[in-house]
Design a binder for these strands. Structure first.
Lengths: 225, 225
DNA sequence: GCTTTTAATTTTGTATACAGGATACAAAGT
DNA sequence: ACTTTGTATCCTGTATACAAAATTAAAAGC
C-alpha cells in the first residue's frame, strides 16, 4: 500500500559522500577560509591526524584540489597551497569580469521572474547590512549575489567556471574590500546592478558587473605578488 | 671554470612525471581520441592490466580526470566516461564562443608580431590542406589555431579554460565537420579571421570566432542527446 | 511465470606497508 | 669559514590487503 512511496524513496537516493569528497571539501574550506597560508607547505601527517583519515583518501583529495587549482603538487617534493602570483590574480579577475559580463547579459534574458526577485531580495538585504556596516554578512551575501546572477544565466558551464574562479579569488577579494570608501563604491555599483536587473537591461548589468570586478583588480593589485 | 654552467643545469631540473600523471594523460587521450565510448563504464581491472599500474595511481588519475570533467565518479558505483548531454554541449559551446571572442580581442591587442605571423602561417597551412581536402591534418591544425589565438591573449586563466573546454568538445566538433558544405563555410570563416588578424581588428576577430563556434552548435545540435 | 529473498561474486573504498627519493645534518676537506 | 661529501631521517609514491557495498545469480515464495 505504501509500496509506491517506498519505491519513490529508493529511486531518489541521498547522494552519498565518500571520505575522499569530505576531505576535499574540508581542505578546500581550510584554504578558502585562509586557515592554510598560501604558499605554505601542506604537512600530510599533521592534517592526516587532524582530519583522522588515512593517506589514500587524503591524497586523492589533494589531487582533486590540485586539478581545481587550489593546490600545487610537485612530484616527490610535497604539496603547497597555491599562492596566486600577481599575474594569476590579474588574469583571473580579467577573465571573471568577462564571464560575469556575459552571465549578466544572459541572466537578464533568461531568468524567471522569481529568480529576478530573489536577486533583488538579496540586494536589499545587502543594502541593509551596508547601512548597519555589518561587513562579514555583507561579504557573504555579496558572493551569493554574484553566484546567483551566474546561476540565472542558465549556462551550467558558465556557472561552474564562475564558481571555480570565485573560490580561488575569495581571499583576495576580501582583502580588497577593506577600505571604507571602496565599500561605498561597491555599494553604488550594486545599486546600479539592481536597477539593471529590474529593467532586465542585460547589456548594462553585464557592463557594471565587469567594471565592478576590474575595479577590484585596481584595488588589490598593489598588495599582491 | 664550467662551475657556472653546472649550476645552471641544476637550477633547471627536468620536470619529473609521476606514474599518476602518466596514467592520467594516457586515459585522457583514450577518452579524447574516442577509444573509450562516452557513457561507458570504466573497467578498473581491465585498464589496470592494460596500463600495468596498481590501483592507487590509477584511482588518483581518475580523480584528476573527474575534476577536469572528463569522467564521472558515482560513489560505490564506479566511474564512467562523461557523456555530454545536449544541454552540456550547448552550454559549453556558448561559453567557448564567448571565451574565444574575448581571447580574439585580447590577442589583437597583445600578440607580438611574431605570434601574429605564426598564426597566419598556421592559417596558410590550413588552407593548403583544405585545397588538398586533407581532413585530419586540417582538423588538428584547426585545433592548434584556436589554441594559439587563446595563447596570444596573454591571459593564463583564459588559456587554461579554453583548453579544458576544447578538450571536452573535441569529439563533438569533429563529428560536426563532416559535411562538405560545412567545411567550406568554416574555411570562409577562417579567411576572415586571418584578415582580422592581419589588421589587428580584435572586435572583428572575436566576432567571427564566436560566430564560428555558434555555427558549430547549429550543425551538431541535432546529433546529440 | 513473475516477483521477492537470499546467497555468491565482483567491485569499490580505505588502510597500511614498503621502497625509493629528497631533505637535513654532520663530518671532512679546502 | 665555506664548500663538499656522506649519512641518517623523513616524506612521498606505489603496491597490496582487507572490509563494505553493490551487482549478479540463484532460490524461494506468491
Amino acid at each position: 500500500m505504501n509500496d509506491f512511496n517506498e519505491r519513490q524513496i529508493r529511486l531518489a537516493p541521498v547522494e552519498k559522500q565518500t571520505l575522499h569528497d569530505q576531505v576535499a571539501n574540508q581542505v578546500r574550506d581550510l584554504i578558502i577560509e585562509g586557515h592554510l597560508e598560501p604558499g605554505s607547505r601542506i604537512d600530510e601527517t599533521a592534517l592526516l591526524e587532524q582530519l583522522d583519515v588515512s593517506r589514500t583518501p587524503f591524497r586523492e583529495a589533494l589531487r582533486t584540489l590540485a586539478a581545481e587549482g587550489l593546490v600545487v603538487i610537485r612530484p616527490s617534493r610535497g604539496s603547497t597551497v597555491r599562492k596566486l602570483s600577481r599575474e594569476d590574480a590579474r588574469s583571473m579577475l580579467e577573465m571573471l569580469a568577462e564571464i560575469e559580463r556575459f552571465g549578466g547579459r544572459l541572466a537578464c534574458e533568461r531568468a524567471s521572474p522569481d529568480e529576478i526577485s530573489a536577486l533583488l531580495d538579496i540586494h536589499d538585504r545587502m543594502m541593509a547590512l551596508y547601512a548597519a556596516r555589518d561587513r562579514l554578512p555583507y561579504y557573504k551575501l555579496n558572493q551569493l549575489f554574484h553566484t546567483r546572477v551566474a546561476a540565472a544565466s542558465q549556462n551550467a558551464t558558465l556557472i561552474e567556471i564562475q564558481g571555480n574562479i570565485q573560490a580561488k579569488l575569495k581571499r583576495i577579494r576580501f582583502v580588497g574590500n577593506q577600505k571604507v570608501g571602496d565599500w561605498a563604491d561597491a555599494v553604488a555599483d550594486h545599486e546600479e546592478m539592481a536597477a539593471a536587473l529590474r529593467t532586465r537591461n542585460g547589456e548594462r548589468l553585464g557592463e557594471i558587473l565587469a567594471l565592478h570586478l576590474l575595479r577590484t583588480w585596481d584595488r588589490v593589485k598593489d598588495s599582491i605578488g
